[in-house]
Design a protein around this nucleic acid. Structure first.
Lengths: 108, 108
DNA sequence: CAATCATATAAGTATTTACTTATATATCGG
DNA sequence: CCGATATATAAGTAAATACTTATATGATTG
């Protein structure tokens, strides 16, 4: 897959609010099984399963079977296409990013 | 519009390769009229016009009428929702970002 | 004003998408 | 092996999307 196609996949995958919420919960919890994600979600188990597949296909999460459960984690380089792309447009957000950096540091 | 909805709009808008290419050309050229974008594009003039509207609605570009032409620029804060969101997942790409930073500095 | 150039809108369409319910597969405990 | 639990797949569907052609609007020039 070409880098542009990778970026498209990542963006398309995260553009859906339901699926992005799944990603955010995985990130927040570190590692979580599909069951955990189904609970506290508005959509059905198959819907979650489909979203997880999409996230995996986009390289955004990894899975690890543990008994009956499959535990999901954020994939290390998954956001890289997005970060790299934004890097090219640094001049449009550099200032904002520096403010953000400061904020993050202050909240430590 | 809620911040999450803004982010969704930005992601959805940039997820389409054709539309993202339009954004990238505007960014590259600094300021460019719709005509210029139609030339060198695979799609029709109405398609470009629709993409420009989407980009404007997402807050990603601004327009400025100049005679018959409408010139487009990248909007200053347009990428902010994306940058801010990525900020929350800093730990997943911080290392990569530092490499990128170094690369960008070296290419100066 | 008439002709022309730049852009937008209308209307239609094929494709994609995000969901649903129903069912299949896989793993475990007794 | 059986029943229960965890996840995936199948099939169908309503809505969204990215395009097209045709036409309208807006601005400039002769």
């Amino acid at each position: 897959m070409t880098p542009a196609a990778q970026l498209t996949a990542v963006m398309k995958t995260l553009a859906d609010p339901t699926r992005r919420a799944v990603f955010e919960r995985i990130a927040a919890e570190g590692e979580v099984a599909a069951t955990g994600l189904v609970r506290g979600s508005k959509v059905s188990q198959p819907a979650i399963s489909q979203h997880l597949r999409a996230l995996r296909d986009a390289g955004l999460v990894t899975e690890r079977r543990e008994g009956r459960h499959i535990r999901y984690r954020v994939a290390p380089g998954g956001l890289a296409p997005l970060v790299d792309w934004l890097g090219h447009y640094e001049r449009f957000w550099r200032e904002r990013f520096e403010n953000l950096e400061k904020l993050l540091k202050e909240s430590d």
